[in-house]
Design a protein around this nucleic acid. Structure first.
Lengths: 312, 312
DNA sequence: TGCATTTATATAAGTACTTATGCAAATATA
DNA sequence: TATATTTGCATAAGTACTTATATAAATGCA
């Protein structure tokens, strides 16, 4: 009773099957955008990409090159307009025509999306292109691949792989400062001690036997964390991830690195101070094994209201 | 500007392209049903066919074997119910469950659809299955085939080919009578002379040097026409096509046969009487070359209000 | 055996398109 | 040079699904 009847119906269910397949893939790509907190939808891709490539197009031209109905294009443009991704200017020569081009925000989005599209292109190629075979077999094989590991998972894994970890380098001092100031300003206020440390990471952290790691994605530093040298253990601190790149599990990756690094150094534990407002962070700490311990009275961070320790 | 941009986008537009393709094919199949005056939709096919094959299924089972959402199944069942094609009975053991089975009308529809499905299966196989190649190439080739000659045209042509013409045989006397009585009763009233002729085609038509042809589709006589022997020409008469099988161009096929036959006999013209109410018929007569001539006063059909002649 | 959980289905609202149709501007034609 | 036709876009409504959620019946477990 659990088998797929559409397979049995063979070519007769061809239409239904490619529909089902395309629906599944579109849904997966939609989830990718959502996971990356990007306000974009896969069905908008063809329209958006053509506007980007041709720089200026009319509604009718879009319908022609995309081979979809003109009302569909009108609707998509309205949605892109609402998202402020395109500009619409009437054609001077022909007052019936509207010329569409990308807005500044649209161009920025393209820049953000391009590396992701590249990865999608790669994963999709890998997903659908194997040995040459019949159309029906391709559908069958692709459905099976989707069941084994969804396109969503494949793309996300690949995107996460693109995040590489780097050791401290003074060229990243500014980013280290900015990433940390960002969340400090959002949730608390910046203490004078913070500024001092964040502006001089080398003397305060590195020269004291501490370490700083960076996460790089798409040529950009998108996250950082520091291990500050305390007696007998490291204090995990200055963890910050660019809000633009949430969903990539960068925090997780930085944590893993810190834990592995401390283990390799033969240490027994990692310690950290945090604040209960930062629930996602606290959850991550718990997930990797940190346990809450009593907070001493004279802690040097004013905002700290929780202390956690991970036994290695 | 007229090229297909989706091709350029390669694998990135994979989802959009199979969506576009499936939409096109579904639309074509929908048109086939419409052309045959069958009140059915391609999206209902998987559900309908599974109910037919399994005889009794629950909503949930359908969702499982079709791999679509349960609300979709509920909606499809409601539509099938509205079309009176299925029966819904609550499960005695499990009062939450609903068991779906085909109604009498549903079974009849399956019988009507099965030969068409067979042709669709054939045409689709031919449409999508060529040399083994990559998934993208299959899509490309299929799109091209669709542009050259749409799936709709391919299926319709094949269905029309299934209509074969037969010469007079007394075993078809009853059908000859019934098909003609049907339209006579619909548009006029049956004159005593009609009944006389329709009940004795052999003595009234064949034995007078006339001819009767039949159109057969799916093992059933679906149309007929007679050439009645008059001095110097044939009178085309008793043309009738089963309303169930409109859209197959059966009338056209019977006409072509009559014209070809008369030509082969070396005759100079065909003559017919009709009535202006029967616009589709009159249109067909005009289309193949019949021209209106003056109607004599003493014509032996009371309902005749137009006389036409085709010069061969 | 009673109550929480799970399962089967229904309902509502949203999505990504379609077709049908209307209106205004541009072009062709007389 | 007026008028009919065509073209470009918008609007409305429909279609074939989806997700989210509700409800009632069945089942699991204490």
């Amino acid at each position: 009773m659990h088998m797929d009847k559409l397979i049995e119906f063979r070519e007769l269910a061809f239409g239904s099957r490619i529909k089902r397949l395309s629906d599944a893939l579109m849904r997966d790509v939609k989830r990718v955008y959502k996971s990356l907190y990007i306000d974009f939808d896969p069905y908008l891709f063809p329209t958006f990409k053509v506007i980007n490539d041709l720089e200026q197009v009319s509604t009718g031209d879009l319908a022609k090159v995309l081979q979809i109905s003109q009302p569909a294009v009108t609707q998509f443009i309205n949605i892109l307009k609402k998202k402020e991704l395109v500009l619409i200017h009437p054609d001077k020569q022909d007052k019936r025509r509207k010329l569409i081009s990308l807005s500044k925000k649209g161009v920025e989005l393209v820049e953000r999306l391009e590396p992701i599209w590249e990865i999608m292109q790669l994963e999709l190629t890998n997903f659908i292109q194997r040995e040459p075979t019949s159309f029906m077999d391709h559908i069958q094989l692709t459905e099976r691949r989707q069941q084994e590991k969804s396109l969503y998972q494949r793309i996300m894994e690949r995107i996460r792989e693109e995040v590489v970890l780097l050791n401290y380098d003074s060229q990243y001092d500014q980013v280290f400062h900015d990433l940390n100031i960002e969340w400090l300003e959002t949730f608390f206020y910046v203490e004078p001690h913070d500024t001092e440390v964040l502006e001089n990471p080398k003397s305060y952290i590195i020269d004291n036997g501490g370490y700083i790691f960076f996460a790089k994605f798409n040529g950009e530093i998108v996250g950082t964390v520091a291990l500050i040298n305390e007696k007998e253990c490291y204090e995990l601190s200055k963890m910050a991830v660019s809000p633009k790149y949430q969903g990539l599990k960068i925090g997780q990756k930085l944590m893993d690195k810190c834990i592995q690094f401390s283990r390799d150094q033969g240490l027994e534990k990692i310690m950290l101070y945090s604040n209960r407002i930062l629930t996602p962070a606290i959850n991550l700490y718990r997930k990797v094994g940190f346990e809450e311990v009593e907070l001493e009275k004279d802690v040097y961070y004013e905002r700290a209201d929780i202390k956690m320790i991970l036994k290695l």
